[in-house]
């Protein structure tokens, strides 16, 4: 059987993790191609709805990553983000959504190795858990039903 190739979206801040991922590249450290990055100015910009949209469009896993505490380019965006994640994870968990599928991390602009590790470990973990069928079931089926309606 062919190995399951999970779809993983990474939402990262421009100043730390995006730059860290750039460094992973400059250092030619290899990681799995399953993860694709969407750039945000700051983790503070990452709205919880964005994570929901990723799941319902077929993501099996999500990475959210930004600057370490105290290192935020905007000084405090990541602190606000952290609070929201604490609450949001609680809600997801209570609603029956698998928080194992969202990996939160702090990866600085100097942590090229760490970024590769975060990606590889997340891919590994999601491979083990398998496709997000619960969400896929409602997402794919409904999207089919009203194609064109929600998707512009």
């Amino acid at each position: 059987m062919q190995e399951f190739e999970p779809k993983i979206v990474a939402f990262v801040c421009n100043w730390c993790t995006y730059a860290g991922a750039d460094l992973t590249g400059t250092s030619r450290i290899k990681y799995s191609a399953n993860v694709k990055i969407i750039r945000f100015p700051c983790t503070g910009r990452i709205d919880f709805m964005i994570l929901m949209k990723a799941f319902e469009n077929g993501a099996d896993g999500i990475i959210v990553s930004g600057c370490h505490p105290n290192d935020c380019h905007y000084s405090t965006g990541n602190f606000h983000a952290r609070r929201r994640w604490i609450v949001f994870r609680n809600l997801l968990n209570f609603s029956g959504i698998d928080t194992e599928r969202i990996q939160f991390s702090w990866v600085s602009a100097a942590e090229g190795f760490k970024w590769a590790d975060v990606v590889n470990n997340t891919v590994k973990k999601i491979r083990e858990i398998g496709p997000y069928e619960n969400y896929n079931k409602i997402a794919v089926s409904t999207l089919f039903k009203e194609e064109g309606a929600t998707n512009e």
Partner: peptide
């Protein structure tokens, strides 16, 4: 400075940010 922290906080989506707008990230 364009961090967008307010954008993610506003529940009515009244604030948006150029370059990383709701429409764009969606």
């Amino acid at each position: 400075q364009g961090c967008g922290t307010c954008v993610a906080l506003c529940r009515t989506k009244a604030i948006d940010i150029h370059g990383y707008s709701n429409q764009q990230v969606y």
